[in-house]
Write a protein that binds this DNA or RNA. Structure first.
Lengths: 104, 104
DNA sequence: TCAACATTTGGCTATTTTGCCAAGCATCAA
DNA sequence: TTGATGCTTGGCAAAATAGCCAAATGTTGA
C-alpha cells in the first residue's frame, strides 16, 4: 500500500468517524429534512448546548455539514445528500444482523 | 426521541464505528474482491497478526463480514455488498472537501 | 453602551479505542 | 505425540473521544 493510499484511507475513515456517533447520526437525519439552527437540536434532546455545538463542529470539519450565521443564530445544512442512501445500507446490516440472531 | 429510536441510532452508529478505521476500511475494500484469509491481510501490510485479527473481529461483531474456518485458515467474506456503493458517497465528501480547500 | 441571547471554546475527567506482546487453541503433518 | 502453522484472546499502556462546566465571543435590542 502506497503512502498516498494510506492517506486516502485515513481521510475516508475520518468522514466515517464523524458519522459514527448516535447523536451525530440523529443530527444528520434531522438535517435531511432541511436546515436547522443549533437551538433546535438542543430543544429536541437532553444534552448540553456545548455538547451539541461540538458534535456539529465534528460534522463540519468532516465536510458533512455547512453552517451559516444569520442574526444571532447559526443554521446548519447537510452538504452531502447521498449520505442518506448510504444509511439505508447501514440499515441493511442491522436487518441482516437481527435475522441472524446476532450472537455477539 | 423514544428510547427505541435511541437504541436504533446507537446500533447504526456501531456499524459505522466498525468501518471508521483506516485499516478496517482497507480490509473491506480488499474483501470486495472476494474472500481472503487472515494471513493475506497480514502479508499485505506491516501490522501484527493479532492486530489484524482484532480488526476483523470488530467487523464481524458489527455484522459486516462473515468468517469460515477451512483447515488451518480462516476466510473472511463481505456480508453486505452495498457498503461499496456507500463508499462512493464518502468519496464524494472528500472530493467536495478538497474542492473547498478545506479550511479545517 | 449595556444586557440578554445564541453559540463556541477551553479545560477537565471519565471512557473507549488502539496496537503491541505473550499466551492460548485448534488443525495438520511427521 | 510432538511440533509447526494459523489464528484468537488477554493484558496492558498510550492515544483519542465524550460530555460537562465555566468562560469567551458575536449579535441585537433597549
Amino acid at each position: 500500500m502506497t503512502e498516498k493510499e494510506q492517506v486516502r484511507f485515513a481521510e475516508k475513515a475520518n468522514v466515517l468517524k464523524a458519522l459514527a456517533h448516535p447523536t451525530r447520526l440523529w443530527m444528520v437525519e434531522l438535517l435531511a429534512g432541511g436546515e436547522k439552527c443549533v437551538c433546535e437540536f438542543v430543544d429536541k434532546i437532553d444534552a448540553d448546548f456545548s455538547t451539541i455545538s461540538k458534535h456539529l463542529s465534528v460534522l463540519k470539519k468532516a465536510g458533512i455539514v455547512a453552517d451559516e450565521k444569520r442574526g444571532k443564530q447559526v443554521f446548519y445544512t447537510l452538504k452531502v445528500p447521498c449520505l442518506l442512501n448510504f444509511m439505508h445500507c447501514v440499515e441493511e446490516v442491522l436487518k441482516s444482523n437481527s435475522k441472524a440472531g446476532m450472537k455477539k
